[in-house]
């Protein structure tokens, strides 16, 4: 019963995550400048991936797997935020040059 419920429940965050990834990809392709593209991309990275990880955690076999997923999500979160910051600062410096 619980398994069945969790399986059904996991579709909600999975679908939400896919939606964020799709929106982020469209934003990356369609937005006009670096900053708004980064904004779209990091949404997909952090929230979209977080939701996918949450959905997968509902289907995980053990608590250990859930902990691994959480750890991966935290690492992606931190490195994504740092990389976004670096890219944005690089873009601003280049604008300052030219």
């Amino acid at each position: 019963m619980t398994e069945w419920l969790l399986d059904g429940l996991s579709w909600l965050p999975l679908a939400g995550g896919l939606l964020f990834f799709a929106a982020g990809s469209i934003g990356l392709l369609r937005f006009p400048d670096v900053y708004s593209r980064l904004h779209a991309l990091t949404k997909a990275d952090t929230l979209g991936f977080g939701l996918v990880a949450a959905g997968l955690a509902c289907r995980a076999g053990s608590l250990w797997e859930v902990a691994q997923l959480l750890l991966i999500w935290l690492l992606v979160l931190a490195s994504g935020a740092t990389a976004c910051q670096l890219l944005a600062r690089q873009a601003r410096e280049e604008e300052g040059d030219g």
Partner: peptide
Amino acid sequence: PWPQLRAWNAHL
């Protein structure tokens, strides 16, 4: 290095 890069690399 920017402070955020420094902080993250120090943890990474």
